[in-house]
């Protein structure tokens, strides 16, 4: 194993850690602009997180070790996911530990424990959030895996770096299966990262919140970790979409300079992804919980059509 690969690996994790609050800041800024408000600046999420780290933790009377353990676990799992996805280079050493199915399962761990933490404190909100989150997950996960399997079938591999290499070398071709998978992936990303129209990250209204309901009782450094992990998850989904469907610009040469160039491309891609995200979020209204079956059903339909057209048309 080469030393520079390990350097790139650590650099990528550092990039994910550092860039995720900026990305969220960018999305919030864009949102403010579209809605005609003044912005809090690109780096406001940093200030939020550092403030939370400094604050004392107020723990619910009934909270058990699960509640205290969950933020660390969620954070660790997200960092691991950040080390696996080929964002800067297609030759990451950690990429071999986990393929794309493991990646989905890693996010499932975070969700599983967050849902448990929601139930741990024993309020109605926590249970409501957990119940809804697990419901959405059980509808989103088949669609997610279908979308991913379509790409895996095309690349004949579930290994992320392999998929990226295959698509990279094939060059931009018009493949209906990949296009369908991409649309499905966008829809599922909205559900998985808790954006409008599935969940509203900015709301604390009792009846509509999902993710926020589970983490309502968190405070101090626990909340900071959860929030940071949430930001990383959003960034990772955007980066995953960018790297799977538009890998051009990623470092395929396996050098440090290539990775630094990939960083520049990454910023451009993320800026674009932020614009798309904000356009979707501004254009849509949050859906009723039971309309979500139709939303996620369309995502599943798209993914399935992708898989069908892989067999039928290609």
């Amino acid at each position: 194993m080469n030393a520079h690969r390990i350097i790139i690996e650590f650099a990528q994790i550092a990039v994910v850690l550092a860039l995720s609050p900026v990305f969220i800041g960018w999305v919030r800024m864009l949102k403010c602009w579209t809605q005609g408000r003044t912005t809090a600046g690109l780096f406001q999420p940093y200030r939020d997180i550092s403030k939370l780290f400094a604050k004392e933790v107020v723990l619910a009377e009934n909270a058990s070790w699960i509640f205290r353990f969950t933020p660390y676990l969620v954070f660790a799992v997200t960092v691991l996911a950040g080390g696996i996805i080929p964002i800067l280079s297609a030759h990451l050493p950690l990429s071999a530990t986990a393929d794309v199915i493991v990646l989905v399962a890693l996010f499932a761990i975070a969700r599983f424990f967050t849902a448990l933490a929601g139930m741990d404190i024993g309020t109605a909100f926590g249970g409501m959030g957990s119940s809804r989150e697990m419901t959405i997950a059980s509808l989103a996960e088949p669609a997610m895996l279908m979308a991913i399997f379509t790409i895996s079938l095309a690349a004949q591999s579930t290994s992320l770096s392999r998929i990226v290499q295959v698509i990279y070398t094939a060059g931009p071709v018009l493949k209906p299966s990949i296009a369908f998978a991409f649309i499905a992936f966008i829809l599922i990303s909205l559900a998985e990262t808790g954006r409008i129209p599935v969940d509203n990250p900015a709301t604390h209204l009792e009846l509509t919140m999902i993710h926020e309901a589970m983490i309502l009782e968190y405070s101090g450094r626990h909340l900071a970790l959860i929030e940071w992990a949430g930001m990383m998850k959003t960034l990772l989904f955007m980066a995953l979409g960018a790297t799977l469907f538009f890998p051009w610009g990623i470092d395929a040469t396996d050098t440090v300079s290539g990775a630094s160039l990939a960083f520049v491309f990454l910023i451009i891609k993320l800026a674009g992804a932020g614009v798309v995200l904000v356009l979707i979020e501004t254009g849509l209204a949050k859906m009723r919980l039971f309309r979500l079956t139709e939303f996620l059903g369309s995502a599943f339909l798209m993914a399935t059509l992708g898989m069908l057209s892989f067999f039928i048309l290609e």
Binding site: L73, F75, A76, V77, L80, V102, L106, S159
Partner: peptide, 22 residues
């Protein structure tokens, strides 16, 4: 190996390590 690979041990160790470090 290019088809798919998974290391339960590495996954477990990294999660454990990051949790502990944080």
């Amino acid at each position: 190996s290019e088809r798919a690979s998974y290391s339960g041990a590495a996954t477990f160790l990294v999660i454990l390590l990051v949790t502990a470090v944080v």
